[in-house]
């Protein structure tokens, strides 16, 4: 087998064929002011301030350990569940600081859903997985209602066609890509406003990744989506805005096109051309 290798500079397309950039810039959904995060003595995030638009996909990029996941977990206060983790600063969503004492993290998390790196369906049936959120939050008033929500969520997650005939089988019996779409369905079943995704495709094969990316692009119509990724190509494909983190600091944020074609900061330039990372 003969292999011809042509050395070309990396080409990063900023718009996938199916992606349609909004004509008008979206209003700000979440506005972050001066966030610092500490794990015990160690400071993980250093004075982060950024605006996240609604009904668009914002990508957090940066080398591993740069703090992008930590920051993501600030937005639904998942860091509360980690012993020894301390968050300082303001994250204002719809005019309210989510770190305020009056905010109930339980309510907040119903509004801000999250999808994790590795698909984590509960060891329950597919139906019960999706019904989990509506059940605990008391969203459905009766069984028909619940079934309706489950069906709608699975449809939105593009999974309905594949699982409608086996809703009683365990969620863990699905393939990795299906599991990830199942947990996305689980997240949207409680009708959140924001969906956080922590490297949602890193455990998936390319075909499953493409399905999930397509799904993200569709969900953008309805939800504010924040996605952490260390695949720059993915960020370029799915996001409208990109935020670059490095060593616990926010280096640069802007529209995805700008960041990838014309970064202001040399460190961003270095990262997207592969010199650091």
């Amino acid at each position: 087998m003969v292999m011809t290798m042509t050395l070309k500079p990396p080409v990063i397309r900023t718009a996938a064929p199916h992606s349609h950039h909004p004509a008008t810039p979206q209003p700000t959904k979440i506005s972050v002011r001066d966030i610092n995060v500490f794990y015990g003595e160690k400071q993980a995030l250093n004075s982060i301030s950024v605006e996240i638009p609604g009904k668009a996909v914002t990508a957090f990029i940066g080398p591993s350990g740069c703090g992008k996941s930590t920051f993501l977990r600030c937005i639904n206060r998942m860091n509360d569940t980690i012993a020894g983790c301390r968050v300082e600063g303001q994250i204002v969503m719809d005019g309210q600081d989510i770190n305020d004492r009056s905010i109930d993290p339980v309510v907040l998390r119903a509004k801000v859903g999250m999808v994790f790196q590795k698909p984590n369906p509960f060891p329950k049936s597919i139906f019960e997985n999706v019904a989990y959120g509506p059940r605990i939050h008391g969203i459905a008033s009766n069984k028909q209602d619940l079934e309706g929500i489950v069906e709608a969520s699975l449809k939105k997650a593009g999974l309905w066609a594949e699982v409608s005939d086996r809703l009683n089988q365990p969620g863990t019996s699905l393939s990795g890509g299906q599991q990830q779409r199942l947990v996305i369905a689980r997240a949207i079943a409680v009708n959140p406003e924001v969906i956080l995704m922590d490297e949602p495709c890193s455990a998936l094969d390319p075909i499953a990744t493409a399905r999930v990316e397509e799904l993200i692009d569709e969900l953008r119509q309805q939800f504010c989506i924040v996605i952490v990724t260390h695949s720059m190509a993915q960020a370029a494909r799915v996001s409208q805005r990109t935020v670059f983190f490095h060593m616990g600091e926010l280096i640069e944020s802007g529209s995805t096109e700008e960041i990838f074609t014309n970064p202001r900061e040399p460190r961003t330039q270095d990262y997207i051309t592969g010199r650091i990372g």
């Binding site: 639904n76 998942m78 569940t81 993290p105 339980v106 309510v107 907040l108 998390r109 119903a110 509004k111 859903g113 999250m114 994790f116 590795k118 984590n120 369906p121 509960f122 060891p123 329950k124 989990y132 959120g133 059940r135 605990i136 939050h137 947990v183 689980r186 997240a187 409680v190 956080l196």
Partner: peptide, 27 residues
Amino acid sequence: VPQSLRDGSYAMGATKSETVKRVILPA
């Protein structure tokens, strides 16, 4: 019981006791 299941449940807005009763104990 893997931490990811707890995370999944908390991220859905479940309280600790709901997580224990509905996710951890069944698992």
